[in-house]
Amino acid sequence: MVKLIVNGKSVTVVAEAETPLLWVLRDKLGLTGTKFGCGIAQCGACTVHVDGEARRSCVMPVGELAGRAITTIEGLATPPEMERAGERWRAGTALHAVQEAWLAENVPQCGYCQAGQIMTTVALLAANPAPTDDDIDSALSANLCRCGTYPRIRRAVHRAAKAIRP
């Protein structure tokens, strides 16, 4: 049994400590927005936030995450006020500025890697609100996209940065 905080909510899961977080999210919590790509932290499709940092959930044993705050793509758009009010986030409601930028730039093709790309970008912009092209390269070169949406991702990151900056 492991106690986790997932998208602002406390959950208790029955899982062996070495089970990667990815499979706890997908198979035990039904949060399938986080994707399985390689299983060895090479592609970034499984990227989530742990205490605000972008991490690869496919290689992260759930036993090490007790009490840590985990955010997945499903929880990205939850405004803090809504969390406090205990209101449940539903797909189809508000979006994070990064997700909005992804829509505006028509980024996704197959879309499978995009949850990971978006999670990495949100963490990048939290740490660096005005990233240069080089900053974007270093943050996002670990996220693979086989459809080749990189040029649009770059544009969307810049767009989101502009939207978020006060």
Binding site: R26, L76, A91, G92, L103, P108, G111
Partner: peptide
Amino acid sequence: LGRLDIRPKVDGSGIYGVDVQ
């Protein structure tokens, strides 16, 4: 025309083969 398929691809709600429950 903007893509009609991408909203569920950015909010995590899209169901791919691996996501079928």
